[in-house]
Amino acid sequence: MLELKGVKLKYGYVEALKGIDMHVKEHQITALLGANGAGKSTTLRAVSCLNRIEKGEITFLDQIVHRLQPSEIVHKGIVHCPEGRKLFPFLTVQENLLAGAYTLKDRNQIRSLQENVFTLFPILKDRRKQMAGTLSGGEQQMLAIGRALMAAPKILMLDEPSLGLAPKIVEQIFDTLVTLREEGTTIFLVEQNANAALHIADYAYILEVGKVVLEGEGNALLKNENVKKKYLGG
């Protein structure tokens, strides 16, 4: 569905991505793992055209997309839920969700998407009149995912949804991702929490300083000795 071929990206003189190849398949969770600074977030930023790639090609449903504007990417159905949530703190929960549906015009569709988000995260329904900035960390992450879902994504890209959350909440968020996959959403998941991510991922890539060093099915990587030593703490 989404393919990256030989993608290179530079921040000034620093080569952040040194020619990576990836393939995100439809109806699957594809995880992208690695340490800080490996280039995980950069990969997502390249796909959503927040940063321009220098070489290579990004295609989505067989169309080249790396020369588009960020807003056009959203129209294509690629929705990026950024690192650190980036909510609109002085908009209410409901307004944040509406903001997520910015590209949509059909009011009925927006309403049903919102109902869907409220079913996934009932707490957001209770808080819908509250300013997003007043939510707890877990609620903010739920809102960030909910907001991304409001754009009716064909592919949902999540950047570290577990960051700074209590283990119990992380579990809840990851359960939601599994539910979303069952409903047919394609997910491209960037994570530092390799253990949790590999347990739900169909396929995974591991990045080290801008290069894919390992890839394979989630289960296989969980058993891989190298991965165990480096990323699973044992």
Partner: peptide, 12 residues
């Protein structure tokens, strides 16, 4: 409130 997030929601 957040320029980058606005890009990501499809705002021009």
């Amino acid at each position: 409130q957040n320029e980058e997030a606005s890009h990501l929601m499809g705002v021009k």
